[in-house]
């Protein structure tokens, strides 16, 4: 689905969402309130300037007492891999955006991420992955690391990696694999109105971070929840 199709399906009565410099911003009526919409379009990379602008919008929404949700729509590149961004402390800017989203959520503004295109690395962590619930739109293709890059770093032949990728969700690119990790909760139905599907998500939000449990249930990330639980038990004892 294109961004316009998604927005039309989310807000059949209209919205004021626009895209500028690859950043999505605006709002629209949703589930009895008015959702704040932020995001990244056109596979734009996320640098210090964009992260700060999005964080400002999230904090404005977080400051209000209306309890309205925040939607994070993502079709991004990775973080911007430039000298200037690192000189200025990109890690702080990306972490700040993620923290703003976490804060908004704790202040009663449910955060819903929707990946409808590409995303990778730091841009993915600072946006979609920092929401309470992340869903995918069919056709989305999150790629933490493309196989060509994995081949270069691991010095394993690309053919071998492609073979491994078929049944190893822990490293292979793609939406299905992020679903198997538990990081993408569900894939939406592109043929049904998104407004109703998002309203259902808002009615049934996870009460804690259960992504590792989902990953175990789905067989894609079998160790994470078990290991974390063992550490918690050890810390409680003695």
């Amino acid at each position: 689905m294109t961004l316009d199709e998604i927005l039309a399906s989310l807000f059949p009565d209209g919205h004021d969402v626009t895209v500028q410099d690859g950043l999505i911003a605006g709002s629209g009526p949703l589930a009895g309130g008015r959702a704040t919409v932020i995001g990244i379009a056109d596979e734009t990379t996320l640098g210090v300037d964009g992260a700060l602008r999005l964080a400002g919008l999230v904090l404005d929404a977080a400051a209000r007492d209306d309890g309205d949700p925040i939607l994070v729509l993502i079709d991004s590149g990775s973080q911007r891999m430039r000298r200037r961004d690192e000189l200025l402390g990109l890690n702080e800017y990306l972490a700040h955006l993620a923290k703003a989203l976490f804060l908004a959520d704790t202040r009663g503004h449910p955060t819903v991420g929707m990946i409808y295109g590409h995303s990778a690395a730091g841009a993915f962590i600072a946006t979609a992955l920092a929401t309470r619930v992340l869903v995918g739109v069919p056709g989305a293709n999150p790629t933490v690391m493309d196989l060509t890059s994995v081949a270069r770093v691991t010095t394993l032949p690309l053919e071998r990696l492609e073979e491994l990728a078929k049944d190893t969700p822990v490293f292979a690119p793609g939406l299905d694999n992020m679903v198997a990790m538990g990081s993408v909760r569900a894939v939406l139905d592109a043929d049904a109105p998104l407004a109703g599907q998002v309203a259902s998500l808002l009615d049934d939000l996870p009460r804690f971070d259960d992504r590792d449990r989902l990953g175990a249930e789905r067989g894609g990330r079998t160790e994470a929840a078990r290991i974390a639980d063992l550490v918690v038990e050890a810390a409680r004892g003695g």
Partner: peptide, 25 residues
């Protein structure tokens, strides 16, 4: 993130950040 476990690692970064926020709260 460990490339050989990139999807698990990337997701876990987010879980750790969220857990840090909970600890700070």
């Amino acid at each position: 993130v460990r490339l050989q476990e990139a999807n698990a690692g990337e997701t876990a970064i987010s879980e750790i950040m969220r857990a840090i926020v909970e600890v700070r709260r």
